[in-house]
Amino acid sequence: MLTKRIIPCLDVDRGRVVKGVSFVDIRDAGDPKELAAFYDKEGADELVFLDITASADARDIMIEVVKQVSEQVFIPLTVGGGLRSVADIRRMLEAGADKTSLNTAAIENPQLIADAADFFGSQCIVVAIDAKGCTDEDSLGHPKPGVDPDLALDETSRWQVYTHGGRTPMGIDAVKWAKRSADLGAGELLVTSMDTDGQLTGYDLELLRTISEGVTIPVIASGGAGNPQHLLEALDEGKADAVLAASIFHYGTHPIGEVKEYLAKNGMPIRGKPKA
């Protein structure tokens, strides 16, 4: 039986993992290689590296990080952040990434999804969608200039797509964008609620379920995990195929082993800890 995937997400800035990771048995908590190997041993089903390096001239550092990590860790590795073109994606895949995650660039140029899927196959194209619940004003529907009318918010819209870490509203309906991304050739969607992200109060289950039921490709839930029950809810009520989390793993409050045990006990198909 296909198992639900548990995915730690690591933010990387200039080659260093940021957002304090606190483990006793890690010598250098900022070293992506060490953390990737640690999570692999803990039973992570995949890894996501998000490059949050702001300066473009430091971007190449991420290529080096991916090369080093993929030499040692043999589970799927997704890299996102700052990928703007087919050439950017190619460099990441050649460095050893298995999938690349597209966000802003895909919204600005949806053809990038189709081109990348044609070149490399859908299986390595993840579209990341940052969504936030619509306010009353949003749902009145003032299409932004340049937004495809088929994707624009309307009176039925419940979530809007944001970019730049939830700061920039795009005037695009998140559910419509999810379906469009799938149609264009995305192999998977990474859905983050900007309302619940960082809150540790649970995922936005309505958002997840609506998107997951609207597409036939897998959906990764993101944003809001504070305890193992939240992950269970995302997989169960939210109908997600995988769950991504950062803080609960990084701070060691709920190690992956504990989370997996909890999910398995509650009836979720889960891959057991790999044998040493």
Partner: peptide
């Protein structure tokens, strides 16, 4: 079911 079949299976 979801297609592609993506993830860990026995």
């Amino acid at each position: 079911q979801k297609i592609p079949h993506m993830g860990w299976n026995q």
